[in-house]
Write a protein that binds this DNA or RNA. Structure first.
Lengths: 393, 393
DNA sequence: TGGGCGGTAGAAACCGGTGTCATTTAAGAG
DNA sequence: CTCTTAAATGACACCGGTTTCTACCGCCCA
């Protein structure tokens, strides 16, 4: 932005350094580099007794101001990309910043802004494989932005759950928060964070309300795809291992799967539906229950990979060969899925991408499209066919 | 610490609020709670026009000072547990803090301290399963301490590796850093962090030098245990899949394993040793190479669980039954190990515990034993016997 | 009663940035 | 060549804590 568009017929409020609508809001300065050499250039002038940098101390905005022969406020303007700085002045200051290798102190800046440059990642159930992946994705989006990621596990059944997260957010004055399922489904938490004036993005399997920013993964359509695939292979007797019913995702996955099968004329009798807890052990138990029935199911869909691994175990114990005698489909595509033998056919949840999108949404500049109101970005899971499925005998 | 030991014959330097050796150094205040109700108690006195809390704003140290009728410095002393406050005064201030539910702002405090209340977790290779566990352990130790955990992945083969981490640490003025393998093995990084005056704890498989704080897991002894176990079962022809040789852990595991076998009189011919890359695919390839030989090994030790899963895959393809025709041992005890069918016998690395210890070491108060010099804490891996091992036929 | 003296408290400066608002500078109009 | 006006810059207070340094209090001792 070379010049501020000089049309401004006395904008409403105060006449600060604010260019257009809300704030300059540039996020952590894009300042970097650590070059050395070359000297300033202009005349030896006003207030500061200009000498080179004192050693053994990180450069501050005052040093830059002194060396560039301007006030600290002007340096601040350059850092925050205010349009109200002459190109010449900006260039001069930028040069000094480059030469010294200056970068503003996020703490001081945060103190003045009343907001830190930290993004929180809040999750329950630290054993879930998807946590590390969404974390990874978020870090990806944050790289080079000047924002850092602070991880914060919690226990949603604790009495201190909502207050605890709230304290965390408030105390650290977080720039934003990413909520992972299942805590992302908690409306009380969402409201509490709103009160604290903290923008948050929720990752979930279905759009929960119309007022929050969300990244939704439409698990319903995903499981429908899996159901259609099994039906197309020729399976007619299919077992379904559900997740714990207090989880939205468990519901979504179940109704998506059953619904799709029924639309194709395959009915799923109640005895073919059992509820697990998203754990390996529950997967074993559920599979044993399903496989004990006659006629035996020719395929089993497990609502996550953990439980699918449990199906493998049960089948092994009962001497049932996968995929020859039993097809298995999982959900999530955790790294384990491809490590199992035979490799597990599963629905891939683009969880890393979801983390990336969430973080990107949080650090997007205020006016931009991404940062607006109640956005809900959808991502599409898709079927990854491996070795654990085949037509029934 | 109720009273400062009143023996102090004119300590060297300045005469501030410093009690004994270095600093008061109390870490983030243990202040908590959010009670309301009850009123101050004393008389209406000096400078501030004492009224109750103004709404809609977080309480500051000034509010507390005003309400308690003392100066902000005295409140600060209470927060930092300085011994130079009369019990009576302290009680009065504590009461107000409780009533208001005040907690100091970490940013402001950090700015004044020239140090943040953040702990960095630095790692490479974001796919490794142990990251999330050490992270978990560290968070465990940090819970309630007032410190937060900032995660920071990096690429140790990048040109910007050391400068990048250094920038991170310096800019955020981290209180301390936890280095995970393999970046923990990098001496250049360790030195760079020392320069920045940042204490760091390194997690590694062997003590690298005598000057750093480390949590070491003695992989050598661990693999020796695995070797002895296989020998005791009766295996005499044992394949070894090594890790990438640039990793210390790979070396340790190999020499530990081979050494132990040889001490027991079992020789390991060179063709029984192949080098993998700690990845699943390399595990498959290495296992195929080993299993193609005649006589075939009756057992294979893989240097991590990922590669052990690869052995399963290779055996499956070659129609070799585990454990009937081939015993397999892994290393790490990742969650996947127990999910495999048959469940994998492996060495459990107490990685979570290591993370916990590292974080605890970093936040330990300055004078305490844990925080001293070049401590190296050792933890013991141990064998977890599951279903993948049995005596050879 | 006066003089240390150590424990306690407070005023003011400071950490490194930003907000507000006044002031200077430059550009365009008359 | 002034006058007007907007753009560009600077002075100063402030964000919420801590440090430095000084002042005070009460007590012991001479």
């Amino acid at each position: 932005m070379p010049k501020a568009k000089s049309a401004s017929p006395a904008k409403g409020g105060a006449r600060g350094d604010v260019p257009s609508g809300k704030r300059g809001e540039a996020g952590p300065g894009a300042v970097r580099s650590d070059a050395r050499g070359a000297s300033a250039g202009t005349a030896p002038h006003p207030h500061h007794a200009s000498m080179e940098m004192p050693e053994g101390r990180r450069a501050t905005i005052n040093d830059i101001a002194r060396l560039a022969n301007v006030s600290k406020k002007t340096v601040s303007r350059v850092i925050n990309q205010s349009p109200f700085v002459r190109d010449e002045t900006r260039a001069k200051i930028d040069a000094v910043i480059q030469r010294i290798g200056y970068a503003p102190d996020p703490q001081a800046r945060g103190l003045a802004f009343r907001r830190s440059f930290l993004i929180g990642l809040v999750y329950d159930n630290p054993n879930a494989a998807y946590i590390v992946h969404s974390q990874d994705g978020a870090l990806d989006a944050l790289r080079g932005s000047g924002f850092e990621l602070v991880v914060h596990p919690c226990d949603r059944f604790s009495e201190d759950f909502v207050p605890g997260v709230r304290r965390f957010v408030e105390r650290q004055k977080l720039h934003g928060v990413i909520l992972l399922p299942p805590v992302s489904e908690d409306q009380a938490l969402a409201r509490a964070l709103e009160e604290v004036d903290c923008q948050c993005v929720r990752l979930a399997s279905v759009r929960i309300d119309n007022t929050s920013k969300m990244i939704v993964s439409n698990d319903r359509e995903a499981t429908a795809e899996a159901a259609n695939y099994l039906e197309a292979l020729g399976h007619r007797r299919i077992g379904f291992i559900a997740g714990p019913q207090q989880n939205r995702s468990a519901h979504e996955r179940q109704s998506g799967f059953i619904g799709a099968l029924e639309r194709r004329g395959v009915s799923v009798p109640p005895e073919m539906i059992v509820e697990g807890a998203y754990t390996f052990e529950s997967g074993v138990a559920c599979a044993e229950a399903l496989l004990a029935q006659r006629p035996r199911p020719t395929a089993i869909f497990a609502s996550n990979d953990e439980m699918a691994a449990g199906v493998y175990k049960a089948a092994y114990r009962m001497h049932i060969a996968i995929p020859d005698e039993l097809s298995v489909i999982g959900f999530d595509d955790t790294p384990m899925a491809s490590r199992l033998t035979p490799a597990l056919t599963t629905m891939r949840l683009p969880i890393r991408e979801m983390g990336r999108l969430a973080a990107a949404m949080l650090i997007a500049p205020k006016g931009s499209e991404q940062s607006e109101g109640s956005t809900a970005v959808r991502v599409a899971p898709h079927l990854v066919v491996r070795e654990s499925t085949q037509p029934p005998k």
